[in-house]
Design a protein around this nucleic acid. Structure first.
Lengths: 187, 187
DNA sequence: AATATACTATACAGTTCTGTATATTATATT
DNA sequence: AATATAATATACAGAACTGTATAGTATATT
């Protein structure tokens, strides 16, 4: 129920996204969150622990948001995968959008042995499996293949948007996704 | 003619890719390169200057390699764009592959005001324009749109491969590219 | 032989970083 | 009223970081 813990988590999430993880010191985090290091280290034993929690929460928030959007708006199971990129567009073009946590984290921690890298990799895999579930529900034959292709488009579009806000890349990713989905349905 | 300058540049390129840019100190670079900081700072006035040169050289090397592959193997201009992802696959699956410099750099320096971020963004744009040139030579109507889509697939596939080596993502990116190119040709 | 050039060795200034130790204050709970 | 809990304030250890100052060496060039 500690609101201070959440405040630290939210502040770190924002600073990591806007300044980078390695470029954000714990001193900055507590200063912006309006608390002290003692409190930060009480809740998160190490900076690495904080980073891992930030990544986990960000991913959960995104997945929950997306899943709610899909289940509330799609009637038939086949509609879900067709609407996927509509909601991704909504997410990417939102003024609050700051990028995808696991994409940036994996770049900052390129070593595959690193726990942060491993979590990023796991989150990427889980998101692909989520798309795969949608493809299976839509009775698509090569669900694995389509899911991988769509996840590539997704990560590419997010990457493009991270590099240059308002790039409009998501519009074309949407078109490409439509084409790939239609082609996969026909098979 | 200075071979020591090149040695520093090559060492930094490797360390930045394998350990991350912010996680690699100049002390580490000179130790691995077998020289001293005085020499490094003689050739590269700041660490930022070194980073910018590393990014520039990496991108030039990649673009030259790709362009040579395409001009040596493709007879008709329309073949070039069709073979693009064959050579990208060759590049990505090579044992020397360590990722795409500008993708990682833009994640480590997310601020759009930062010179390193700006160079990354410029390199991404230039690569897309290169694909666009190929699409135009192949007389594709919506060359801009196709180029953007292919660059998204490219960046997504590289991102996937950076996260997990041997992910096989490039195989499916190739299939998706084929589909998108065929669809763009028909229009 | 004298001199310029390239490089090395080393020490250090000044900052920033993670993480901890210590002491104090405010707020609930019993 | 007494006591546990939560948070603050502050200082600091110890390491790592960028960048520079100083002095010395090795190799060409004139």
């Amino acid at each position: 129920m500690s609101t201070l813990r959440d405040k630290i988590l939210d502040t770190a999430t924002d600073l990591f996204q806007t300044r980078g993880i390695n470029s954000t010191g714990v001193d900055t985090i507590v200063a912006v969150a309006g608390t002290t290091k003692m409190t930060l280290y009480k809740y998160f034993h190490t900076k690495e622990g904080l980073i891992l929690e930030v990544l986990n929460k960000s991913q959960q928030d995104f997945q929950n948001w997306l899943d709610n959007k899909l289940t509330n708006n799609s009637k038939a199971p086949a509609d879900k995968i067709k609407q996927l990129f509509d909601f991704i567009e909504e997410w990417v073009t939102s003024p609050n959008f700051l990028g995808m946590g696991f994409i940036k984290a994996s770049a900052e921690f390129p070593n595959e042995e690193n726990p942060i890298h491993q979590l990023s990799s796991k989150q990427s895999r889980e998101f692909r499996l989520y798309i795969c579930k949608l493809a299976n529900e839509a009775k698509i034959k090569d669900a694995d293949g389509l899911a991988l292709q769509l996840s590539l488009l997704f990560e590419g579009a997010v990457q493009a948007e991270q590099m240059k806000r308002g790039s409009g890349a998501i519009k074309y990713a949407k078109k490409a996704a439509k084409l790939l989905i239609d082609s996969a349905i026909k098979q």
